[in-house]
Structure formats: C-alpha cells, structure tokens
Amino acid sequence: MSEADSDEALMELVKSRDQDAYAQLVDRYMGPIHAYIYRMCRNHSDTDELTQETFLRLWSRATTWKPGQVQLTTWLHRVAHNVCVDTFRQRRPEINTDIDPDTIATSEDPQNEDRRLAVHNAIANLPERQRTALVLCQLHGWSNKDAAQVLSVSVDALESLLARARRTLKRQLAMYQSEMCT
C-alpha cells in the first residue's frame, strides 16, 4: 500500500478493519489533530489523551463518514472538536487551561517568553467556539468555509465568531502587538 492512497480508499479499508490502512491515516493526520487539540486545551497530557480518543473514534465510527459529503480532515477535526467539548463539559474543574510555562517551546529571550505566554493564555481564555474558529482559521490556515463545517455553523456565523475572537485578543495583547509593529 503506498502513501499516495487517497483518504477515501484508506477509509474503505478501515471500515473493513484493516489496521495497516488505519496506521496510514494516523500518520497522515496525527500531527494536525494533535496540534489542534493542544491549542484547544493547552495541556500536554490532556492533549495526548484526547488525540488518542479522537483516533479511537476514527476506528470505531469509520462507517459514519460519508465520502463526498465532507472531507476526511474536516470530519476528523469535527470529531476532535466534539471530543474536546465533551471532555471540557464533563471534567470542567479538572482541565487546566492555564498554560504551563514548561510546556511552551523555550526561547532565550525572556521578552519573547513573556509574549508567548500571554498569547497562549489569551487564546485559552477565549470562549470555546471563538477559540475553535480562531485556532482553525488563524493558526491552522483553514478557510472560513471549512472551519464552519467543523463547528456546524454558517460561514457568516463563523466569521462573526472569528471577528469577536480577534477583537478580544487585540484588546488583550495590544501591548505585545505594538512591539511587533516596531
């Protein structure tokens, strides 16, 4: 089986319980899904656990994905989003969305560190739907249309979420933003 196999072909094999095809999909999508979940929950151990849960659902619910309706990457991000939301609701007091400074890539410049921490905390404190919209469009480079599919909202509603998220962050990070301008 080659790396060039399409998502559709691999998913058909996964539906018939082919573990090699499943491994290829894990290799293909684990990076983006892990990064997405990390940006949603800001905590490494929760990120690993929720990424695992997302891929277990890919295996157990493969038959619910309908090729042609939505791209696999969009479907998988929607699954990841639901896993995050379910967990946030069930374990609200346990999930620590305050960023642990040790988990952020370190920089020699303390000013950079400070700025990085402020950005992480500002994103973590956004309401969940605004955070999802921002993470997908701003940090993952998704189109507004694709991100709207993940959140199951209209493109207009997605853009409204994005605008509110950006406004909030610009207000909170104004100090750092002016540093970036200079």
Binding site: I104, H120, I123, Q138, L139, L169, Q177
Partner: peptide, 8 residues
C-alpha cells in the same frame, strides 16, 4: 497581530 499569534 497575525505575526504575534503565529509566533506561538
């Protein structure tokens, strides 16, 4: 602003 967010 985009550069500030992309930094992290």
């Amino acid at each position: 602003f985009d550069a500030l967010l992309a930094d992290s």
